[in-house]
């Protein structure tokens, strides 16, 4: 059970980073930490004690216990989506750097009210 709470703790670490950091790149890193805490959680859901990888091979043990393959498939899909999100965030961040000349969000505040 502890592991699941550690996952949630990691999620909160990422959230804390997003809220408190002032640097755009550090915000992106915090966001990625949050993302991967969710992926870890998914990987944990599918885990079965003494399970083997869910692949049909020739030398399988008798009556194999497979780990759940579905969360793994979901994590792979989510990683692909996460890749797209990170790429978008970084692309926007470097564009912002070009326009404002800084990564500090205290100086990037044209939108108010």
């Amino acid at each position: 059970m502890t592991v699941y709470f550690m996952c949630f703790f990691l999620f909160l670490v990422g959230l804390y980073g997003i809220v408190t950091r002032r640097n755009l790149i550090k915000i992106v890193i915090s966001f990625t930490i949050m993302e991967f805490s969710v992926f870890l959680f998914f990987a944990l859901i599918g885990y079965v004690e003494n399970g083997v990888a869910p692949i049909l091979t020739k030398n399988l043990p008798e009556n194999p216990v497979f780990v759940d393959p579905l969360p793994q498939a979901m994590v792979l899909t989510a990683i692909v989506i996460g890749l797209a999100t990170s790429a978008m965030l970084l692309a926007i961040a470097i564009r912002i750097y070009k326009k404002y000349g800084t990564f500090d969000i205290r100086e990037i505040n044209n939108l108010r009210g």
Binding site: L15, I18, L24, I27, F31, M34, E35, T85, M88, L89, I92, A93, R95, I96, K99, I108, N109, N110, L111
Partner: peptide
């Protein structure tokens, strides 16, 4: 636009 998009992405991502 860029600033709005970054804000939107972080909140939407959360």
């Amino acid at each position: 636009e860029l600033e709005a998009s970054f804000k939107y992405q972080v909140l939407g991502g959360i």
